[in-house]
Design a protein around this nucleic acid. Sequence first.
DNA 1: TGGGGGCATAAGCTGGGGTTATGTGCAGGG
DNA 2: CCCTGCACATAACCCCAGCTTATGCCCCCA
Lengths: 308, 308
Amino acid sequence: MSEAEPSVPLSHRVPDLGALELLLAVARLGSLGRAARAQGISQPAASSRIRSMERQLGVALVERSPRGSRLTDAGALVTDWARRVVEAAEAFDAGAQALRGRRDSRLRVAASMTIAEYLLPGWLIALRAELPGTAVSLLAGNSSVVAERLLAGEADLGFVEGLAVPAGLDGAVIAHDRLVVVAAPSHPWTRRRGELTADELAVTPLILRERGSGTRQVLDAALAAHGGLAEPLLELASTTAVKAAVVSEAAPSVLSELAVGEELGARRLVEIPVRGLRLGRELRAVWPAGQRPAGPARHLLGLTRRTS
Amino acid sequence: MSEAEPSVPLSHRVPDLGALELLLAVARLGSLGRAARAQGISQPAASSRIRSMERQLGVALVERSPRGSRLTDAGALVTDWARRVVEAAEAFDAGAQALRGRRDSRLRVAASMTIAEYLLPGWLIALRAELPGTAVSLLAGNSSVVAERLLAGEADLGFVEGLAVPAGLDGAVIAHDRLVVVAAPSHPWTRRRGELTADELAVTPLILRERGSGTRQVLDAALAAHGGLAEPLLELASTTAVKAAVVSEAAPSVLSELAVGEELGARRLVEIPVRGLRLGRELRAVWPAGQRPAGPARHLLGLTRRTS
DNA sequence: TGGGGGCATAAGCTGGGGTTATGTGCAGGG
DNA sequence: CCCTGCACATAACCCCAGCTTATGCCCCCA
């Protein structure tokens, strides 16, 4: 009988980031020694680290030879999975670095939560590739906070997801988002025949983010013509909490496509099509009226346009 | 001046998986002590770990009070980024666990590389949720290897991405994939006016996987009517190597949509539309003719159907 | 045949992360 | 009003994972 689930927590079953990075270096460079140098450690350290990773996983990852090392088939697969972990870690790092908000930042960004959470790390990684060494600071908050910071000269570039450009700011649409009605796969709505109507949606108690969130605003506006939103079944403070509640509470919600993309892909949540409701919204970059972004801000703005 | 790039490697700037898991537990449970218990460590250990993570990141993550702990705004953002890292680690774990291939596995899966790499980990995570404790083993190989294992009774369920169901097997289409022509954003094709024609594609030297890969087969077949594939500019052994080469070598490639989805999203690669070429392909589950999958295999098959 | 690249083994050090024991602050009930 | 419970912090100690340097073996090639 094989040992059961998180009796041993995940972190003991997965090699740490250093080991995964090392594995990627071995895959890329074709030798333990070169990979070791690339990671700034000694060759024996790399050798032992890879070996203990193989022991931990119970799989041979690299084929050692006196002329270098190549990945085994299993090793290639493991390396690909490892790459995703490392990429997620890179996004984490890019975000965290910006959040630290050093005073000497050359680019100060203010962004709404959804954008900061889902899009900004990718932009920051791209920016780092193009303008290495540019210190970026990030402040996350709702549209009014973003506007306030920009107008106070405390931020160079903002990103908002509301319906309109806040007063005093200029802006450009950089991407489109869409709110989607989602429910757990077990919910009756997933087995409906026709599409849901806006009226039905309006009278159904939903699980929602609290009033004031960008998502909530758009939804309120869209349903205004249909008698307005019913009293929510549950109001939660974070998108994540809402997602969790949708799965367990057996009630639907309306969330940004950005936020539920993954869940829809894995069918942990199901999208419920709705007829006759415009739930699209623009994501905008904004800056103080008249002051076109320049320098790193302009660069970042360019990146965001390319990253739909 | 802030310290530069990977002078310090990623793994030293990102908290380790254990710390990230702990942070998620704090977010979920609202108290360091409860999170500690959930992770199977002592309360002081959790306290110190969170504290050192805050020191490392230079950001306050949790607001401590005598009645519990809540995330700060920055902490909520960091936690969301952390969640992705942990999810990637979960996929890694699910895959690696299966790769270990214990003899006592109750479900033995054989899958083509692309499917094993991109889809299987997600399925395994879902399966683990529904049938906890089911030991799964995975063997990755091309279609003929998959067929061979199934026919030899050494695998219970297979997944292939070729054009046809191998002889002696029954199968069901579980998802659709599409090959896409991709190029670096700097490539002239990204600035074409009309769509690319199949003939143009056929005469262009591409960067490709080696002959025999599922991708290559489909491409060969699709271009057969257009004079066949030109001699490749470069033949590489892994999808990852191909992607890297496309970016740097300034030549296009043709790859599975599954493989380049992320790169397209971040515009590291750009899709080049092609006219008059059918590059779709079916992903199929397969099993020995006449022996419908039962038990865990049937369960997994059900999951794959839901996970398009 | 000697040298160099590549991996493994050995011996020894260090520190991060763990534990137990204990202290402090706040809230709510008897 | 005080006591008890819960939550977090501090202190002292321990251990092992992972690093380093030194060295050996193997193979290829000039």
